[in-house]
Design a protein around this nucleic acid. Sequence first.
DNA 1: GAACAAGTGTACGGAATGCGCACACTTAGG
DNA 2: CCTAAGTGTGCGCATTCCGTACACTTGTTC
Lengths: 256, 256
Amino acid sequence: MEQRPDYFVKSTEKTLAVLLAFNAGATELTVSQVAAATDQTRASARRFLLTLADLGYLEAQGSTFRQTPRVLDIGASYLSGLTLPQAATAHLQSLAHELEETSSLCVLEGQDILYVERVAAPRLHLMNVSIGNRLPAWATSMGRVLIAQLAEAEQESFLERVQLQRYTEHTVADLDALRRELDTVREQGWSLVNQELDEGLRGLAVPVYRKNQLLGALNISVQAGRNNPEAIKQILLPKLREAATAIADDFGGRLA
Amino acid sequence: MEQRPDYFVKSTEKTLAVLLAFNAGATELTVSQVAAATDQTRASARRFLLTLADLGYLEAQGSTFRQTPRVLDIGASYLSGLTLPQAATAHLQSLAHELEETSSLCVLEGQDILYVERVAAPRLHLMNVSIGNRLPAWATSMGRVLIAQLAEAEQESFLERVQLQRYTEHTVADLDALRRELDTVREQGWSLVNQELDEGLRGLAVPVYRKNQLLGALNISVQAGRNNPEAIKQILLPKLREAATAIADDFGGRLA
DNA sequence: GAACAAGTGTACGGAATGCGCACACTTAGG
DNA sequence: CCTAAGTGTGCGCATTCCGTACACTTGTTC
C-alpha cells in the first residue's frame, strides 16, 4: 500500500484528477465517466465536478460537463512568466518565417516531451500539436536530444521504463538501436528523426543550453517529400543552432 | 456570510487558489506569500504547496515554489480538443502570413477577454500576450465586439461592474462614450480600437458566429505608424470577415 | 407495458481528514 | 543580544468529506 506523506491533501489530488480526466479523448464527460476515470465513487466525483463548475472551470450542459476557457488560467503564468517560452517566442517566429517550416520548443516531462511554445508555418501541417501537448520523447528529435543529455543514471532509468512502439516502418523500436542512436546524438549535439512517429515528417532538433544547464530542445519539423536529410543538415542545422544560442542568451538575460 | 452549496469541496477551491497565486507577478513564491495571497494559514498553504509538489505541478527550490511545465496539462485538453482554437489555428496562420500582422482569437471570460489562440507575425510586437492571457475586455477591439453582442441585460450587468481606466491619451474611459461606441460596433459588426490600451497599437476585430451562437472574436493587431485607420478598414476588414466565416464553418463541421 | 439496466440527484451518520494553534528553529538586521 | 519575520513540525479536535442507500428518470428488451 502506497503511503502518502502526512501533509498530503487528498482532495487536491482528486481535483486535479477530475480536471485531467478531460484530457483523455472526450471533451464532454458525465458524472459516471469521470468517476470511472478517476477511480472515485459517483457521489465524490459529482462533488468535485459541481464545485469546479461553481468556480467556473467547468460548465454543466445537461448531465455532461465540459471545460471552460478558464482552465487556461491555471497554466497561464507558466507561459507568460519570465520563463523559457517567453524568451523563445521571437526566435521561433524568425525561424518559422525564414525557413517556412514549423518550429517548436519542448521540455522533458517524465517520458514525454511537452510543447511549451510553437510557431507553425503557414501551410497545412500533418501533426496538429499545440502548446501543452505531449509526445513520447524517445520517438521524437527533441526527445532524443533531451534524453541524450541526461546524466547516465537518469538516462538509464528513463530507458528502463520506456515503452517502445512501432509507429511507422521507419520507427527505431529496438532498445539497443535506440541506445546507440542516443550516443550518436550526444556526440554530435543534434538529432534528426526520419518519419519515425509519423509517416512523411522529419524533425531536426538541438539542445538549448544556458551555461551548463539544459533548458529544453528546439526543433524544426519538415515534410519528408520536400527535403532530403542531407539538405536539412546543411541548411537548417546552422540556423537552428544559432537560434538555440540566442534563446539561451535571452533567457539568461531575463533572470538578472 | 456567503453560503456555499453543501456539495462544495473547499479543498478544491484552495487548491486552485494556490495554483493561481502564481499568476500574480512573481514566478517564485514562498509559503508565506502564498498563504497571504490565498487567505489561508501558513500551515494550510504549506500542505497544498507540498501536495502539488508531490504531484509534480510545482517544484520546491529551497524555500520557494515555482510551477513546472506540467501545469499546462490541465488546460491542454481545452486547447487540443475538438474546440474553437483547433478550428481557428489554420485560418489565423493564413491571415498572419498573408497580411504579415499578428492575428488572435479570444473569448469573453467575465470582464476580460481571454486569448485562446494566437499567431504572431514575424516582427517584434509591442504586446507580448500569449495563450491563456487576459486583457480588460472594454478596452480592446475583440472585447468590444463580444460585449456588443451580449443580450441587453448581460451587457448592462457588464457595464455596471466595469472598471474604466485611462491607459493612453486615446483611451475612451467614459462610460457614456463607451456605450455609444458599443452601439456603433453592434450595428456595423466590427470594432476598430485605436491605441486605447497601448500607445502605437491598433486592433481590428469581428465576431465569429456559428448560426446564432457567438463563438468568440477574431482580431488583427497592427502598428499604428504603418497603417492608417481607413486603409485598415479597406484592406483588413474583408479578410478578417472571410476568416471568421471560415472558422465558424470549420468549427461547425467538427461537431457533427 | 412490465421488467430491467444504467444512468441521474439527494440525504445523512460517522470516520478521518484537514485545520490551525503552538512551539522550536534559522536567518537577517539594528 | 534581541527582535522580527521567516521556516518546519506535532497534535488534539472540529469539520469536512466519504460512501452507502434510496428515489427517480430514461431507454431497451422481451
